[in-house]
């Protein structure tokens, strides 16, 4: 099974950045109504930098693991860097080949993150 590599399963089973962030000053939800996946991103920012990013959500292994990887990736990044973050970069981060029907799962967290910064 190429899809469920150990690092993806690790992020899913033992997420490092999952949980509400009370100190968040930005937050946003993205959902995929066709499968019921949802991701909320919480961002605590200072000046133009991310101090802390956390997420909550429900859904498949891919969407939830991608959310955790993305939260890890954006810690301490500048807001401009995060806004400029491209889909391809997240898919590279996830690191597995995805068919057209599952790309949406992996990209859902990015949608939530970008919306939080709008």
């Amino acid at each position: 099974m190429d899809l469920y590599q150990q690092n993806i399963l690790d992020h899913y089973k033992h997420p490092q950045h999952r949980g509400e962030l009370k100190a968040a000053d930005k937050r946003s939800t993205a959902a995929n109504p066709s499968c019921g996946d949802s991701v909320i991103f919480y961002l605590q920012t200072r000046d133009d930098k991310i101090v802390q990013a956390r997420w909550m959500g429900e859904g498949c292994v891919l969407s939830q693991a991608a959310a955790d990887m993305l939260a890890e990736f954006v810690q301490a990044k500048t807001l401009a860097e995060v806004v400029a973050l491209k889909k391809e970069e997240l898919l590279k981060l996830v690191g597995v080949e995805l068919g057209p029907n599952r790309v949406r799962c992996a990209l859902l967290p990015l949608e939530a993150l970008h919306q939080a910064l709008k």
Binding site: M1, L3, Y4, S34, C35, G36, D37, G59, C60, V61, L62, R102, C105
Partner: peptide, 21 residues
């Protein structure tokens, strides 16, 4: 087990099912 993940595991075993609503 989320339905999408189950479908992917089954697909790997050459079993085609549908996931969703």
């Amino acid at each position: 087990v989320h339905p999408h993940d189950l479908s992917s595991v089954l697909d790997d075993l050459n079993i085609a099912v549908r996931s969703g609503h």
